[in-house]
Design a protein around this nucleic acid. Sequence first.
DNA 1: ACCTGAACACCGTTCAAGT
DNA 2: ACCTGAACACCGTTCAAGT
Lengths: 200, 200
Amino acid sequence: MAHAGSPRDSRRPRRTDAARNAESLLAAARELFDERGPDVPLDEVARRAGVGNATLYRHFPTRRDLIVAVYADEVTALCDQGAALIEAESPGEALFTWLDDFVVHVATKRALALAGTDDDDQRRTALFDDWHRSMRSTADRLLARARRAGAVDAGLSVDDLLALTSGAAIAATGADDARRLLRIMRHGFTGDQGSAGFVG
Amino acid sequence: MAHAGSPRDSRRPRRTDAARNAESLLAAARELFDERGPDVPLDEVARRAGVGNATLYRHFPTRRDLIVAVYADEVTALCDQGAALIEAESPGEALFTWLDDFVVHVATKRALALAGTDDDDQRRTALFDDWHRSMRSTADRLLARARRAGAVDAGLSVDDLLALTSGAAIAATGADDARRLLRIMRHGFTGDQGSAGFVG
DNA sequence: ACCTGAACACCGTTCAAGT
DNA sequence: ACCTGAACACCGTTCAAGT
């Protein structure tokens, strides 16, 4: 399963101390993001990891790179979960089950997603930029199957689906709120649930 | 019409130089936000306004206060627009016409909304904190009327409506995109538009 | 009462010197 | 090839001194 955020695919092997330092930095960043939020000084991450600050910049040129690396595993898990759901009996339920996991993921990392916005590209959050590709392909397959089953509107694109879903997750006050907002969006403000009947 | 962001309701009158400085700062901030984005150095705002930097802090203690003051007029206009729409023939169309203006407003100020997030309260954007009250009461009246007309789901709350709507606006790539996403949300992912019939 | 600009603190980024 | 920590630059905030 291809996933975003996997660092380093260079040819020759990396020196063992460099590999160890990268791991220490990731562990320190994970801890400090939890403890003090996504704006924690990068020097502090380096200090806790026991390396010089410039070493952090060598491995992770921007704060965003660090954030993405820290949560790469979780994104991979989410995509794997989506791959498993592609076999589920009900294509409609499969899609919305995955979206449910997705909004929880985004809502939980909300602060990090916003902190990862770059100055030059203020239109996109870190989630939408770096993790978007793998998320998008996962969502795309689930959506296509749900569409064939008639469980979603034929005109709904993946991009719109993901934009709306992550927008709701970012606007939500927490994971539970995000899941509730997703349920509302599924049937719309008008609340119509009729005509489509029991599909899938 | 009560609105957010109106500065200064102190008793005794303000010295004329203080009033002039506040105006200069607002004008300079408006220009620089347009030219260089919401992260422009505050010292630069003060310099363009022709005042000392500490004067800026006296009038607007946080960057957020400055942002809110700059866009207070626009928020007021949006609320007035909502007040006018409360008389419209179709309650459902009135609500969605206003929401259409609302998403354009939020999408246009998207970067500012995100820049206004505080460190201590990372759950809310500036829009949701400072302009929320007046927006909320406007939306509330339009929603109540639309609900009585059966144009929206009976269980839809103002808070959920505004959370979803502004979330879509923030996730959108621009004003046009935001309007499109609003239309999708209105009827939901399932695309059902049936059962409710021609209400309003 | 309000203004000023310099001083201070903090943090991201770079770089010369090491191994 | 990689690491180090000090130096640099930038910006928000405060404060002593002015009017």
